[in-house]
């Protein structure tokens, strides 16, 4: 399978929003290469005729009725916020649009 370059790790780290030091980038590139090497084996037996399993036990149609319950008190909601203002969570300026 494809080997994982330092640049690839940097791209993934950006996707995963994790700042990595140069040291970490280099080390992870090496480690992930070995790991991916070994986990890539799965494709040996994952043939087209085998269905994928995403849930260990097959359940379907688990619903709740549309009945509101007591919400979290706003004080509890904000208690752990690094910063808050006027009942809202305060976050640093957002540059990108979503």
């Amino acid at each position: 399978m494809s080997t994982i370059s330092r640049e690839e790790v940097a791209r993934l780290a950006a996707l995963a929003r994790i700042d990595l030091t140069d040291l970490e980038l280099t080390r992870l590139a090496g480690e992930l290469d070995v790991i991916v090497e070994s986990v890539a084996r799965v494709s040996e037996i994952a043939t087209a005729d085998v269905p994928a399993t995403s849930h260990p036990l097959p359940l379907t149609n688990v619903f709740r009725e549309d009945v509101p319950e007591e919400p979290l008190p706003v004080a509890d909601a904000l208690a752990a916020a690094p910063a808050a203002e006027g009942g809202r969570f305060s976050v640093p300026q957002i540059l990108e649009e979503d």
């Binding site: 994982i4 995963a16 700042d19 970490e24 992870l28 790991i35 976050v91 640093p92 957002i94």
Partner: peptide, 27 residues
């Protein structure tokens, strides 16, 4: 910025094994 604070927070707050597995999973 929010984007950079998220990156810095996760870079400083997660340990090596967590970073390793998140990057692997992202891949």
């Amino acid at each position: 910025t929010a984007e950079r604070v998220m990156g810095a927070t996760r870079g400083a707050g997660f340990g090596d094994e967590v970073k390793r597995r998140i990057i692997l999973g992202t891949y």
